[in-house]
Amino acid sequence: MLQLRDLPSKAVLDKFSARYPEADVSAVSSFLHLLRVASDLSLALDACLSQHGLLQGRWWVLILLMREENGISLPSVLAEKAGVSRATMTGLIDGLERDGLVERIFDRDDRRRVSIRLTAAGQEKLDQVMPDYYTRLRQCMAAVNEEERVLLGGILGKLNAGISAFDVPGSMRTGT
């Protein structure tokens, strides 16, 4: 993914808005800053997880399984919760199974029906990763007090509601 390392100045944004009157300079500036921070956070999370031999996709699958009462879920449910295609989820599960972190459980009556279970090794991996993750997350968020966190959550909720402005008919996100 291309990441904009050099955010435009107000003067540059003003120049763009002179050419494109639809541009709201403060909205563009805030949006680009948010994208920038989100990209940096994702890279930082990748770096943290890589120290534990994981990538985000595989880590999220383990987290999703750990959230289940019995550590078991269907691949289609995992794909839906992770926001990925079933094919992508199959690839993630294949790698996790190869590493012994999850296992496939085949239905006795219909071997086409399969569930995925977090193994003891998968839980051990999470038990190694999560303390480091939570420590880093706490440090990252230390400068943001509780009131600001609530405010941030509200703002992010409003932004999430506005994402549909980017939807294109026929795209994967809209499903049309």
Rank of each mutant, 00 (worst) to 15 (best):
E124P: 02
E124D: 15
R136I: 08
R138E: 15
R113G: 01
I116H: 03
A120M: 04
R136E: 07
L118C: 01
C140D: 11
V114F: 02
R136S: 06
E124Y: 04
L118Q: 00
L118T: 01
R138N: 08
Q128I: 09
S115D: 14
T135M: 04
V129G: 10
Q128M: 14
G122K: 03
G122T: 05
R112H: 13
K125I: 06
G122R: 03
P131G: 10
T119H: 00
V114Q: 13
R138F: 07
I116V: 15
P131T: 10
R112N: 11
A121V: 04
Q128P: 02
E124L: 10
K125P: 04
M130T: 10
R113I: 15
R136C: 00
R111C: 05
D132Y: 02
D132R: 13
L137I: 08
P131N: 11
G122Y: 03
A120S: 05
T119L: 01
A120C: 01
P131D: 02
V129C: 11
A121N: 10
R138Y: 08
Q139G: 13
E124Q: 13
D127T: 09
M130I: 11
Q123L: 13
E124K: 07
R112M: 12
R138A: 14
Q128C: 12
L137V: 10
D132G: 07
D127N: 13
K125Q: 14
T119I: 03
D127V: 08
G122I: 05
D127G: 06
Y133H: 10
G122E: 02
D127H: 06
C140Q: 12
Q128L: 14
T119A: 03
L118R: 02
V114L: 05
Q123A: 12
R117D: 00
Q123N: 09
P131H: 04
P131M: 07
R113E: 11
R113M: 13
Q139S: 11
A120T: 09
Y134C: 07
L137H: 08
A121G: 05
R117L: 01
A121K: 13
P131L: 12
S115M: 13
R112V: 06
T119D: 00
R111A: 15
S115G: 06
D127E: 10
K125N: 00
R117H: 03
R112L: 11
R138L: 11
R117Y: 01
Q123V: 08
K125F: 05
R113W: 05
C140T: 12
L137W: 04
C140A: 15
R117K: 15
G122Q: 01
A121Y: 03
R113L: 15
I116D: 01
S115H: 08
Y134S: 09
R112Q: 09
V129R: 07
R117P: 02
K125D: 07
D132Q: 12
Y133L: 15
L118N: 02
I116G: 01
G122P: 01
E124V: 10
Y133T: 09
Q128V: 12
C140N: 08
Y133G: 04
L118Y: 00
I116F: 04
L126F: 01
T135D: 06
T135N: 08
A120R: 04
A120W: 01
C140H: 12
V114S: 08
R138K: 09
D132C: 14
D132E: 15
Y134T: 07
Y133V: 14
L126E: 03
D132I: 06
M130C: 11
L118V: 00
